[in-house]
Simulated scan of single mutants.
Amino acid sequence: MVPMRVTPSGPTVYIVGAGGQLGTALQARSEGVCDAVVRPLTSADIDITDPTSVAAALGDLGPDDVVVNCAAYTDVDGAEADAEGARRVNTAGPEVLAARTADAGAWLIHVSTDYVFPGTSEEGSRPADCDGYEPDDVSGTPATVYGRTKLDGERAALSVDPRATIVRTAWVYTGGPESRDFVGTMRRLEQSRETVSVVDDQLGSPTYSHDLADGLWELVAAGRRPQVGGSVLHATNAGRATWFEVARGVFEEIGAQPDRVLATTTADFPRPAPRPAYSVLSGHSWEAAGLTPLRPWRHALHAAIAASDAGARSLP
């Protein structure tokens, strides 16, 4: 694919997984944020599990360049039946990319997930002033194949390229009515159902994809410094919510009656992969690295829906 924007004096930023939700947001939010050539790479351009494909796609990688890896096997339920497929993409893939960036002296930023935590800690069992999981809180075994392969991918990447940066995020959405994420699903269900039942016993960090993309571009623009090289950071919108609270927020934002959202429990919606009861991520590591905290999740949800509605109105 051709570069999105050419600035001959700047580095090249490769967006791996450019066809996905975050990769698309990174492209949309790239204009004017750093002096770089932006090269989006979709699965048609690079197979991160194949060293030959990676070498070809990143053949001109230099020490000033950045590889942002958004590619992942994200089908949490599907991974339970396809552990090898998840392992190839989520574990072997980051390792292959890290070998290439380490060889070139380039900077790998690898995006990971809240699912690396066991997710069994109830809010009440954590300190009263706790703002969520810190990067070093990983202990025990993640409850899902997806989580285990993503955690192994983090460790593989840092083992091969100790100067890489891991950025964990959670509950990412774009917010458009056609998007396949939670917010998009709630918008469609509001149109087709009188009431919607949503679990109220899973607590996490809802994150607007454009806010996450802006944060990643700030990270790229600031450069690889001691605070970020070889580090694990958490980047989510501030605050915490249950899926039930997010769904009510969606209904409020689109002018629907929030009382149409009914609270239920995880036990009422059994899935092949268990969902974490608690996966709030603290933003302390992000701030400690000198990066701008992402705004509160409720403000971000408002902005996401307003932006998608404005975009829809501008269509011919």
Rank of each mutant, 00 (worst) to 15 (best):
I166Q: 00
S179F: 10
T195D: 08
E178C: 08
A156W: 13
T169D: 00
A164Q: 10
D201L: 14
I166V: 08
Q202R: 02
M186Q: 13
S179V: 11
E178F: 10
D200F: 07
Q191M: 12
F182E: 13
S197V: 11
V183P: 00
T169H: 02
T165M: 09
A170D: 10
G175I: 02
T195G: 00
V196F: 05
T169F: 03
E190I: 15
R180F: 10
V198A: 01
R187Y: 04
P177Q: 09
S159G: 13
A170W: 07
R187P: 04
D181W: 13
M186E: 12
D161H: 09
E194R: 12
V167P: 00
E190R: 12
T174R: 04
A157M: 03
D201V: 14
L158A: 00
T169P: 04
D201H: 06
P177S: 09
P162R: 15
W171Y: 12
V167M: 08
R163Q: 15
R188S: 10
A156N: 11
T165V: 09
R180T: 15
A156R: 13
R193D: 12
L158V: 01
I166G: 00
A157N: 10
A164W: 11
T185L: 15
R188E: 07
F182K: 14
R193Q: 12
T174D: 10
S179I: 11
Q191V: 14
V172T: 14
G175E: 05
E178W: 07
S192N: 11
D201T: 02
W171H: 09
D181T: 07
Y173H: 14
V172S: 09
S192A: 09
V172R: 05
Q202C: 06
G184N: 10
S192L: 14
M186N: 01
T195E: 07
L158E: 06
V172F: 10
M186D: 04
E190A: 15
S159N: 12
S179R: 08
A156E: 15
P162D: 15
S192C: 03
G175S: 09
R180W: 12
S197L: 14
W171K: 01
V196Q: 04
V198Y: 07
R188I: 07
